[in-house]
Structures are given as C-alpha cells and as structure tokens.
Design a protein around this nucleic acid. Structure first.
Length: 704
DNA sequence: TCATTTAACGTTTTT
DNA sequence: CGTTAAATGA
C-alpha cells in the first residue's frame, strides 16, 4: 500500500519532509490525525526508523490509542506485538514512564503514586492545619490553584518563596513548602510534578538526557498550541542533534491558557528551531460550507491570531440554526425533541448527535429531558467514573497497598468503612508513626503496642495494617482485579455502602465495572497509572447514544449533528471573563470556534431568555457570538445562519402541590410519606426510616 | 470519643 | 441539587 495515497499535496509533503524541524499548521478538520499517522507509518516503513525510536505526544490517551491502531492498520501489523510500537501518549504518561525508569536519580522512588486534584487539596488542608493557619482565611482550593499555576510556569518552592512579598503570599509560600514536604514523605507526585520533575531530571542528569536524546530519533507533538512552559522545556531537552521535531497545531483552537498553555510556543517555533519547514493544511474536509463560514465569522473577530484561510469544497448544506427559547427547560426539550424525531424518522442514529455546553452543570437539565424522552446518552466528563466515592475509596486502598507511605490515601480509608477510629486516635497514631520512622503500613501492623489509644481503635488499626501488608506482598502474584475483590470482601465494603437507597445497586455496578476494567491489567502499577492519568474523553465510546460534554472535551472529535446550548452572555462567554483581560474573551471565542467546527452536517445553536441557575432565575442576553456568526436578523433568506424563535410550548410547569400524608416516590430515595409542608419545601419520611427536607421545584417527586 | 444529624456553601474549563 | 464542615447525641 502506498502511504501517500489519498493525501492532498500539503499533506503529502508533511509526510515526506522527514528530517529537520517541521511545523504543521493544521486548521480544524484538515486531516491532521490522518497526516500524522501516515507520517509515522512512513518513517517506519520507508525510512527504516525503528518504532521504538519514535515519540508521539498527543493531548489525550484516547488520541494516542487511536493513533496507535491507525498506524497499525497502515502498516498491517498486529497490535498485540507490544515492542513494535512507537512511544505514544500524553506528556503526562510519557513522563511517568521516564520517571519510573530514571526518577531514582532525582530521589524519586520507583513506586511513587500520583496525586490528583482531590488528593492535592486534602494534602494542602493538612499542611494548613500543621502550620496552624486559619483555614477560613486561606482556602485550600485557591492555594492549590496558585501552586499548580506556578509549577506550570516552572516556578518551584524556592523561587516562589523568594518572590513572595505580601503577608498572604508568604503564608502561601509556607504552605507550598509544607505541601512539598508532606508529598515527598508520601512518595507521591502530583500532576504538575510529573512534568517539572522530568524537566529537572533531563536538565540535571547529563547522562539521562543524552541517553534519551540519542534514543528518540523522531519526536512528534500534537496540539502544540496547548503546551505549557514545562512541556515546552521537555521538548527542547529531548530534541537531539538531528532536530527531527515535528509539531502540529492551530492557534485558533488554543483553549487551555488557564492551565498554563501558551500558544506563543507555536508562534515562536520558527525562532526556536531555525530553518524549520512550515506546512499549512487549510482544506477542511469535515464541515459543510455554511458551518465553516459561520465559524470563520466568529473567529475573525479575534485580534490575536495568525492569518489562515480555511476553505472547503463541500456543498453549502443546511444553514446553521439559532434557536431562541424562553428558558432552560424548553431548551432541553427542543434538543431532545429534535433528536428523537430525527431518529424516529430513520434519518439519524443516536450516535450521530452531540450536545456541547460551557459548564458541566448545564448537563443536568439535558439529562432529565433525555431520561424523560428515553434517549440513550453518555456524559463525557462531569462526575467522572473514577471520581465516584466508592471508586475513589477502593483506589485509595490500592494506592496504599502499592505505596505504603501514601498518607492521603491512608487518611481517606482509615475509617472507611467505619471501624471505630476517630480523629483523636488517628492523630495519636500518626505522631507515633512519624517518630517510629516506619512507613504507614508497617506502623499499622505494630499499632497494638501504641500506648494510650483505645483498645478498639488499636485493634482496628492493626487489622487494617495486616490486611494491607498481606496484599502488598501478594501484589505481584495476584491480578489487580483479585486484589480489589479481596479489599471489598475483607472490609465488608458492600455492607458499608448499602444504605437502602436505589443508588446502592448503581454503586455495586460501579465496583463491578472497576473490577472488570482491572482485568485488562496484569499488575497494580500499570492499572494505577492508567486510572490516575485517565482523562474524561478517554472513556468516550462511539456508539448508539447521544454524547453530552463540555466544549473543552469536544476538541478533536466530530459529529454529524452538533447542538451548542446556552449561548448567553455570562455562560458563553462566561461571566468570569468580563472583568478580566480581553485575551480571555478571545479564548472564549476560540472555544466557540472549536465547538462549531465539530459539526459535519448540521449545527444548532440555542439560547434561553431565562435560566434556573443554582438558587434563582437569571435573565441573560443572547451571546455576542451569535451576532458574530453573521446572523443577519431573523431571516431564512440568509443561507448561512437562520434565526428561529421556538416558543411553541408556552405552558408553565405546574408545580404539583403536596399535602401532609401524601405518599410520594423519588427516583433517588425511593418511596416515602410527606410529614411536613413549608411552602415549596416538604419534609419526607422515607420508607427506609430516613427523612429529608426537599425542594419540590428541584426534587422530582411523584405522587403515588 | 465516635457516629449521626444538621447547616453552609458552592459552579469554568482539566492532564 | 450535591458535597462537606460543624454540632449534637450516644
């Protein structure tokens, strides 16, 4: 098979220029992934580059997997031959691999654990407590944010402390320092550490640097516009003398500056790598010209951008439809009505549709409408699978088994399920453990010899330790799924979560899903790495269901029909950018652009005059992006954008009135009886004995 | 001293 | 609405 077949001239040269630095400026839908996969296959089969010598960095793990299988298809190679594989993954996952191999040179133990956002905030809380600062004045979340952004711009503790001027900043510097100490004691690295420790490793260890530089003959970076300072440094450190570096990106689609991404990295590529080839991919193969034109009109309003002319040879297609609704409920009805009628007509499958929104909270109303209409859907992101409580609990056990020093995981599970260990006993144990010099698990095993702790607490601690220790020693001979099973059995975890609500079934289901997921891994290390670095889009499945996700999560995907909802000032663009720099407004506009260019055939935009936001009703004007699209009044004459006012259902939702004594049913809590009514609030005594005060406006209660 | 009940608070986007 | 921190009872 000729690897250049089916490529346009620009794509062909992007494949064939195989030596020296190369910058590919790829517009939305211009066949970027195709070009990259062909390039990799070309390097392997035509230039005899060994797959192992190729490093390809993608933005998500899913993109990496997809790229892997497409390369395999092109080469006709069996996917199961694991050694015959380029290095593919996100910056984070590649860094984990490098650090597991060479991290010991920087004093990082081979079995370090990875702390996520939650782990980090709870460790910061501990740090604040230990420094006895007033945890009311200093919010752990905001400290976490400060630490993360300084790490992303390569500012370490020392530097941060040196620069800290205000009393507030000095406090944060102390917390930062303490946090680093505690994290080190737990043998853990947070997300940002994965990057900056790799930079340190490559910068400080000459031997390591030259070894990896020699190893990677070709480096490819996708979504280069979204690299941050640390990632940029890694790239510069890894590029060898041949300078075979190929980066792909589109500054118009840069939507992660709040995470430290800096799209000037891509604008400066020529300066960084002198003599670089530049190839522009400007033909769009994805969208109809109506969609592309509307999207181009939106992005044209941005001042800070490179000039590009994206074009397509596809037909005009249906105009972009802009729907005005009276409120968020009608917005959801419109979306679900459209979807279900198109499917009923046989024109589309559920899997053809995506609904995109600015904030995760917006999925709520949509979800309810979909449930009502029996539309199968999947939510990408939001409350991620691995963020659920029961899953995080079990994973915390796994982490503690893998890394017996992991204090955050220990704190999470020490009394989960409740085993009679309170705060006081815990404090006493921890001070004893620190003094003993033992790791947490070893100390637990000796807990029965600690004076002045309750007998009951002492026994429980020891029992937990013995369990962790025995699983620790079995971790190499026992598959991860079996370890999970034993944790659940030994701790009676199922009894703990059985609270008699219908949600119990769902939780059990989640645990089973976790176990079956674990069956794909042979050892604990791989499994933990995978779930720590799993991103929201990684769990995205193409299938027979509508996809709901944030605009951010939609990057890189495409759908025949796309709905973008909540096009209101304050939502998109988000209210937070109003009182900050104009560049943030431009990023909101790029976000809109990314969303619009996901659509292949139909694009629907909706906005509501009023919306129920947490607590009260808000009235937002239509987003400025709607007029930016080139909507010329309410005309169906315009071939690009069509404005439609959908007020077909002027019905106001009748709030059912409840009386004391009514029997009701809640999807969440099951059946019960109303014992008190206070305006919109009702108190319900549920059949499982628990009572709850609910707002009838939100809680979907049904009379029975 | 622990476990359960009640009050307060919160929403931008995420590797 | 959900989660998490204080407050109360056993």
């Amino acid at each position: 098979m000729d690897l250049l077949d089916g490529l346009n001239p620009a794509q062909k040269s992007a494949v064939q220029v195989t030596s020296g630095p190369l910058l590919i400026l790829a517009g939305a839908g211009s066949g970027k992934t195709k070009t990259l996969t062909h390039r990799i296959a070309y390097l392997i089969s035509k230039k005899s580059v060994s797959p192992d010598e190729i490093l390809a960095v993608t933005f998500t793990n899913k993109a990496a997997k997809e790229m892997q299988s497409r390369v395999n298809d092109l080469l006709g190679v069996n996917t199961s031959i694991r050694n015959f594989m380029p290095w593919m993954g996100t910056f984070h996952s590649v860094c984990v691999k490098l650090l597991r191999i060479d991290g010991d040179k920087m004093g990082i133990p081979r079995n370090f654990v990875i702390y996520d956002e939650d782990d980090r905030t709870s460790l910061i809380k501990q740090a604040i407590k230990q420094l006895s600062f007033n945890d009311k004045e200093i919010k752990p979340k905001s400290v976490s944010h400060v630490i993360s952004s300084s790490k992303n711009s390569m500012v370490g503790v020392e530097e941060f402390s040196a620069v800290a001027a205000s009393p507030q900043q000095k406090k944060i510097a102390k917390i930062y320092n303490k946090y680093e100490e505690l994290k080190k004691a737990s043998s853990a690295l947070d997300f940002d550490d994965l990057l900056i420790e790799t930079v340190r490793l490559l910068r400080d260890s000459k031997e390591t640097r030259s070894r990896w530089r020699g190893h990677f003959k070709h480096i490819l970076i996708d979504e280069y516009q979204d690299t941050n300072s640390a990632q940029y440094n890694i790239v510069k450190l890894l590029v060898g003398e041949d300078r075979n570096i190929c980066v792909v990106g589109d500054d118009w689609q840069s939507i992660y500056s709040w995470r430290g991404a800096d799209f000037t990295n891509i604008l400066n590529f020529e300066r960084d790598f002198k003599g670089a080839h530049i190839i522009k991919l400007e033909q769009n193969y994805r969208s109809t010209s109506a969609i592309l034109e509307a999207a181009s009109n939106v992005i044209a309003k941005n001042k800070q951008r490179t000039d590009k002319k994206l074009w397509t040879s596809s037909a005009t297609g249906a105009p972009v439809q802009v729907h005005e609704l009276s409120d968020d409920l009608e917005e959801s009805s419109l979306v679900s009505d459209r979807i279900s009628s198109h499917v009923a007509l046989g024109a589309r499958k559920f899997g053809d549709f995506a609904v995109l929104y600015r904030t995760n909270a917006q999925s709520y109303t949509l979800e309810r409408a979909f449930l009502r209409m029996r539309i199968p859907y999947q939510i990408v992101g939001g409350v991620r699978f691995y963020d659920r409580k029961e899953i995080k609990d079990i994973v915390a056990y796994l982490k503690l088994i893998y890394q017996p020093n992991d204090s955050v995981s220990f704190n999470r599970i020490v009394n989960t399920p409740t085993r009679g260990i309170g705060n006081i006993s815990l404090e006493k144990f921890l001070t004893w453990q620190v003094n003993s010099g033992m790791n947490i698990v070893d100390a637990l095993c000796k807990a029965d010899s600690i004076p002045d702790i309750n007998l009951k607490a002492r026994q429980s601690l020891k029992k937990l330790g013995v369990m962790a220790k025995s699983l620790y020693s079995k971790q190499d001979s026992t598959p991860p799924s079996e370890i999970i099973n034993q944790i659940i059995e030994l701790t009676n975890y199922k009894d703990y979560i059985n609270d008699g609500t219908p949600q119990f079934e769902e939780r059990i289901g989640n645990l089973e899903a976790l176990m079956s997921d674990a069956q794909n891994y042979v050892n604990l290390s791989d499994f933990l790495e995978e779930i720590s670095l799993m991103s929201s889009v990684d769990s995205f499945k193409d299938g027979e269901q509508v996809t709901l996700m944030t605009l951010h999560a939609s990057k890189g995907l495409e759908f025949p029909v796309v709905f973008i909802v909540g096009l209101e000032e304050g939502i998109l663009p988000h209210a937070r950018v109003f009182d900050s720099s104009p560049s943030e407004l431009e990023e909101e506009r790029r976000l809109m652009y990314v969303g619009m260019t996901r659509a292949r055939e139909e694009l629907h935009i909706t906005y509501a005059r009023s919306r129920l936001n947490f607590g009260g009703r808000v009235y937002n004007p239509a987003s400025r992006f709607i007029s930016d699209m080139g909507a010329s009044g309410a005309s169906s004459e315009d071939s690009t954008v069509e404005l439609i006012q959908d007020f077909d259902t002027p019905e106001y939702y009748n709030i059912e009135s409840f009386d004391v004594g009514d029997r009701i049913k809640s999807n969440i809590f099951g059946a019960g009886e109303i014992v008190d009514v206070d305006g919109l609030a009702v108190t319900v005594k549920f059949d499982n004995g628990k009572s709850k005060k609910l707002n009838t406006e939100y809680a979907r209660l049904e009379k029975i």
